[in-house]
């Protein structure tokens, strides 16, 4: 068990190493950040001075080794643009994104699983067909459009929900959270709904497919033959098995949403990491981009670890594989 976790963390370290090289070289090849940093009228002499001050005049592998040395000590360099430490820039904005995505995932699971099970148990019912048609709209409508429609409806027409920013936040240790205040929660609803709609639709479809498959299994029929109540069959025999594919999909979607929440963040002016990443790529602000990618890789590896641990809780046969 602990060997499994250590093994995973070692793998993560190698992935981080490889990713850092790829991103470092990739950004280097894309263009020269100096042209973004100095005014077009600057002389060559001025340019060289700036280049030297950032250490960009040295060969790429020397730059990388220098970066790696300080990164191992927790220093990812400073933003070319603002001079702030890159890590700090990202970590400041990370709670907002994690909060938004977490709330959106929570919403999509709480809505998606029950609807998916209903649609799976009664595939012929009108209500189920309505759910399934709705889910097709749910994941084919573009996020920015859904966001704008929600703003039109709830903010402009009804005037009951705010459209931008995080609202009032509460400081918990080093991080700020909106979810703990009523105002913050009201600010969170529309962006989370926008982001969660696609996820909920996907979870509905996965749940329905899994429900239909498991419903036809002999062990469900055997549970009925034992005289169990239908609620126990549903809660224990069916749900535990249906959860296995749901955890896979929800975990993947969570990571996906976290790294690419930028559209929703833009529509609702949500001060998360997505906006920061796009800006940094446009200005070739290498330290920020590299730090962002590395943090995301680390986060996704940890997320996968959590998913695997959850598997072991739910699916006993996966425990066996780890023991070997």
């Amino acid at each position: 068990m602990s060997a499994f976790v250590i093994n995973r963390l070692l793998q993560a370290f190698f992935v981080l190493l490889v990713m850092s090289v790829l991103v470092f070289v990739g950004i280097y090849l894309v263009g020269d950040p100096i042209s973004m940093l100095v005014s077009p009228e600057a002389t060559d002499l001025e340019r060289d001075a700036v280049r030297e001050s950032f250490g960009l005049d040295r060969p790429i592998f020397v730059q990388y080794i220098t970066f790696l040395g300080s990164a191992l000590q927790g220093d990812f360099g400073r933003s070319f643009l603002t001079g702030e430490p890159a890590l700090q820039l990202i970590l400041e904005r990370m709670p907002a994104t994690v909060e938004l995505v977490g709330f959106a995932m929570f919403f999509s699971v709480v809505i998606g699983v029950p609807l998916g099970i209903i649609a799976g148990l009664r595939p012929e019912a009108t209500f189920s067909k309505v759910i399934m048609t709705g889910s097709i709209f749910g994941f084919s409508l573009p996020t920015f459009w859904v966001g704008m429609v929600l703003i039109m409806l709830f903010a402009v027409q009804l005037g009951i929900l705010p459209t931008s920013g995080r609202g009032e936040t509460v400081q918990v240790g080093p991080i700020e959270l909106s979810i703990l205040t009523l105002d913050g929660l009201r600010h969170l609803i529309l962006p989370a709904l926008t982001l969660g709609l696609t996820k909920a639709s996907l979870i509905i479809r996965v749940t329905r497919a899994a429900t239909r498959e498991i419903q036809a299994m002999d062990y469900i029929k055997f549970a009925r033959a034992k005289g169990l109540s239908s609620s126990r069959i549903l809660r224990v025999h069916l749900l535990k098995n249906v959860l296995i594919p749901i955890i896979t999909v929800a975990g993947l979607e969570f990571g996906q949403a976290l790294a690419f929440a930028v559209v929703t963040e833009t529509v609702f002016s949500w001060p998360g990491m997505g906006k920061l990443l796009i800006d940094s790529i446009l200005t070739l602000d290498r330290p920020v981009v590299v730090a962002y990618v590395l943090i995301m890789v680390l986060f996704l590896v940890l997320l996968n670890l959590v998913i695997d641990l959850l598997y072991m809780v739910i699916d006993p046969s996966s425990r066996e594989k780890v023991r070997d």
Binding site: D218, G227, H237, I314, D315
Partner: peptide, 27 residues
């Protein structure tokens, strides 16, 4: 439901499919 498993019980053909894979035998 009260009759099933109580007065009339059943054994299925394929033992690999009759027991729920995620629940222990005692459960």
């Amino acid at each position: 439901r009260r009759l099933r498993g109580n007065d009339i019980a059943v054994v299925f053909q394929d033992p690999s499919m009759t027991l729920n894979p995620v629940l222990r035998v005692d459960t």
